[in-house]
Amino acid sequence: MAIDAATVRRVAKLARIAEPEERLEPLARELSAIISFIEQLDEVNTDGVEPMTSAVHVTLPMREDVVADGGDAERVLLNAPKSDQGFFVVPKVVE
């Protein structure tokens, strides 16, 4: 399925990446080429095939309910572009 500029705009919005209007068409062509490449998969019969989400055959390991982390807000905020009074400071969120 070919991807058009409107789809690129929608997907870029979902992915929160600003793409200038003039990039939409070229991107649509690039992405369409990739999509038609991956559409080769349609040739494979996958009826009744269990999807494979992991190459690991063990089951999910579990951790005990012990507090052994946290208590260091400074470390958490160390790389923050902006912080104040122990909080991350981010652009105003309008609900």
């Binding site: 390991p61 579990m62 507090v67 982390d69 946290g70 208590g71 958490v76």
Partner: peptide
């Protein structure tokens, strides 16, 4: 493994997993 207690100072009960740092991974609490 960060705590869940109520009323802590901001970002005190936060591990780097909770803050989504690069390369941090989840391990489930039994």
């Amino acid at each position: 493994a960060a705590g869940t207690g109520f009323g802590a100072a901001p970002n005190d009960h936060v591990s780097l997993v909770d803050a989504g740092f690069p390369g941090m991974l989840p391990v489930i609490n039994r």
